[in-house]
Design a protein around this nucleic acid. Structure first.
Ligand code: ZN
Ligand code: ZN
Length: 331
DNA sequence: GAGTTCGGACCGTCAATTCG
DNA sequence: GAATTGACGGTCCGAACTCC
């Protein structure tokens, strides 16, 4: 708490990047199989509630450099799904993280509340009450509590959110259940021995936010993954996959006004400022398809596209933080 | 309509501080 | 030493934009 930087009150809308305009080109995932009228992140919680109608967005510990530069969702796999999509799997490496600064003095902490454990009590009571369809004490009963019949999460819909941990696979608290693309079908299957499948367990106790070590409740069955992205090829470690370059190099493009003051004459590929490979040229660049060349030769992955056409494009610095705020605000 | 950019909300981690 | 606070460094959503 107390991170004053971003408590806008916005609902946490973290969910997979599913819009057709996004990297993930699987709009069918925007539809929940059970609650198609609701956004993906707003489906009833495993415990049968819709606590705050959202769950926490899960982040990978370390995005790959490509995703980091593109500010796009990465995953734990290497190569990650997005790099596989762009055919740059061989460049998919963990980004370097800065070391946290030490020795920074802080002001005095505010006094601890010895009764912190009791403070939560009313919340729990309220939650349980809602779960039971009974308003907690003190809560007006004019409108009945929102109740959505819980039908369980189909596996594969955990996405970036915490998934069931009822699995022999050990995982750190709060980490998602391991799901891997099934090599022979368009399914993701939980790593769980079939014999361990069992009837639905009772929903876990209700809390606004599940403790890290409490798995979301979901029927341990094998469900088809709701999607198989058009680009979704099996990860390279699962199925040999020819390198997409140089045979499928994007064309080369040139800046509109070569040699313009303050602008470098850079000729490169239609890789975006973050090193994305694209069939499209960057904004404001004139297209002249020429002999393909590896973007790294031209430093394109270092963000060498320069500002064009009124759009402030941050020329990325090679060192330091890349895309994130640091690069946008004074970088 | 589809791909790209990027502001900023949000998350996770961990050093500093407090407490028993 | 354990618990807690607080904020840094990071991820990535999603609206706005650009291009075909
Ligand atoms: Zn990635
Ligand atoms: Zn990657």
């Amino acid at each position: 708490m107390a991170d004053a930087r971003g408590q806008s009150g916005d609902p946490d809308d973290g969910h997979l990047d599913l819009s057709p305009t996004s990297d993930a080109v699987h709009p069918e995932m925007t539809m929940h199989p059970v609650f198609p009228a609701l956004p993906l992140h707003m489906y009833p919680f495993a415990n049968g509630l819709t606590p705050r109608m959202h769950s926490k967005r899960r982040q990978v510990k370390n995005a790959c450099t490509n995703c980091q530069k593109a500010c796009k969702k990465c995953d734990e796999a290497r190569p990650c799904l997005r790099c596989v999509k762009y055919g740059i799997g061989e460049e998919c490496v963990d980004s370097q993280r800065k070391e946290r600064k030490k020795g920074i003095k802080r002001g005095p902490y505010r006094k601890r509340d010895r009764k912190t454990t009791n403070v939560e009590q009313p919340l729990d009571v309220a939650a349980v009450a809602v779960h039971q369809g009974v308003p907690p004490p003190g809560v007006p009963t004019a409108s009945p509590p929102l109740q959505v019949p819980y039908m369980g999460y189909p596996p594969g819909y955990y996405g970036q959110y915490a998934a069931p941990t009822a699995t022999p696979t050990p995982s750190k608290p709060g980490e998602a259940h391991a799901y891997y693309p099934h090599p022979h079908s368009q399914y993701y299957v939980p790593l769980q021995h079939p014999q361990q499948q069992q009837p639905f367990p009772p929903p876990p106790p209700t809390h606004e936010q599940q403790p890290d070590n409490v798995a979301y409740y979901a029927p341990p069955q094998f469900y088809p993954s709701p999607f198989m992205p058009p680009y979704a090829k099996p990860y390279s470690y699962m199925m040999p996959q020819p390198c997409q370059r140089p045979d499928h190099m994007p064309p080369m493009y040139q800046k509109p006004h070569p040699g313009a003051p303050g602008q470098e004459d850079v000729v490169g590929y239609a890789s975006d400022a973050y090193g994305q490979w694209s069939a499209r040229r960057p904004y404001g660049w004139k297209g002249t398809s020429e002999e393909p060349r590896h973007c790294n030769e031209l430093g394109m992955t270092e963000g060498r596209w320069q500002q064009t056409a009124g759009s402030v494009r941050h020329a990325l610095e090679v060192s330091g933080s890349i895309c994130a705020q640091a690069a946008r605000s004074p970088c």
